[in-house]
């Protein structure tokens, strides 16, 4: 269980204008600024939940994860993970959690991953029998095969990430903080990692808090999303609720039997895509039944599909509205 109340993190950063003169001046007199990374964030995640943590770059996602994992000390507020205060870095707390960072590696570069695993076994004091069993389970789930004996530097990015996951999970943590675990991976590898996270969550009842730039990860894995922007939470709830509240219109795609002028389609809704006979419209919920029956009955459309707008569009719209509102507020 994760309990976060009014969590705040400020960083003091050195600022200087560009140019050599400014660099010289900064040697004598430094100007520091307080940067608000996270501001009064509160949420609660129950045991076994899978939650997506979304936000643009610099929104405060990684800083929050690092505070939850005990790497950073909060400036203010309260965090509890499984009854522990992370910043105290109790050994019992660290035994229960893991943090996987897609951009950083814990594998020993020149050696096969099995050496890193042995090192982690010693650090977490995992009994040999349990270590063997967990390693076998993770190896099978991730289809690692012979990768364990190849030097880490010879592994592809996707293979490396699989091994990073094994290294991070050998002590069977019950809370997983995953920061961009699929970054840079191809689609099939993303899918494999996603399925693995789901299987681990279901087998071990582990709590998962995931950040990802790939919305497919979040859609596939997380029934609940927390959206953060400029250090503050702007949405916490189920994914459908987020989509409904931000972009309630549906996407209706269909194939026409014969060419039709764009104007005729635009009368039904906002025309988003037109590729030959295939068209995609954005249609309000209230107009949806009428449009569908018109497309099928009058236009004799086929292959009709009704979908929610992609999460990327929903977030872009959400953050765009917030930026515009903030700009309007600060304008004289």
């Amino acid at each position: 269980m994760i309990d976060v109340r009014e969590l705040t993190k400020h960083f003091r950063v050195h600022r200087r204008p560009p140019g050599f003169g400014a660099a010289l001046r900064s040697l004598v007199r430094r100007r520091y600024e307080q940067v608000v990374a996270v501001e009064e964030v509160s949420f609660r995640i129950e045991r076994g939940e899978r939650v997506g943590f979304l936000g643009p770059n610099g929104a405060g996602k990684t800083t929050t994860l690092k505070m939850l994992a005990g790497l950073l000390h909060p400036t203010a507020g309260h965090v509890e993970v499984d009854g522990f205060v992370p910043a105290r870095r109790d050994a019992a707390f660290l035994q229960r959690i893991t943090l996987v960072m897609g951009q950083k590696s814990q594998l020993v570069w020149d050696l096969p991953p099995s050496e890193t695993f042995a090192l982690n076994r010693a650090m977490f004091d995992v009994p040999r029998a349990q270590f063997r069993e967990t390693l076998d389970e993770l190896t099978a789930l991730l289809d690692l095969g012979t990768l364990l004996d190849k030097p880490a530097r010879q592994l592809s990015l996707g293979e490396r990430m699989k091994c990073e996951l094994v290294a991070a999970l050998l002590h069977r943590p019950t809370t997983l903080f995953l920061d961009e675990p699929t970054i840079g991976l191809d689609v099939s590898m993303q899918l494999a990692i996603r399925e693995f996270v789901r299987a681990y969550n279901q087998r071990h009842g582990a709590t998962v808090l995931l950040t990802s730039h790939y919305m497919d990860d979040v859609v596939a894995l997380c029934p609940r999303v927390i959206v953060i922007d400029c250090g503050r939470i702007i949405h916490d709830g189920d994914l459908r609720g987020l989509v409904k509240a931000t972009l309630p219109d549906k996407r209706v795609s269909f194939t026409l039997p014969a060419p039709l002028p764009d104007g005729d389609l635009e009368r039904l809704g906002t025309l988003l895509v037109r590729e030959g006979l295939r068209a995609t419209l954005s249609v309000g919920e209230r107009e949806l039944p009428g449009v569908v029956s018109h497309v099928l009955g009058t236009l004799h459309g086929t292959d009709l599909a009704i979908e929610d707008p992609p999460l990327e569009d929903v977030l872009r719209d959400m953050f765009g509205k917030r930026r515009r509102a903030a700009a309007a507020e600060s304008a004289p």
Binding site: A91, A92, L94, T98, M101, M123
Partner: peptide
């Protein structure tokens, strides 16, 4: 970070 995440 990875060192600080270990219970040692």
């Amino acid at each position: 970070d990875y060192v600080l995440l270990k219970p040692v």
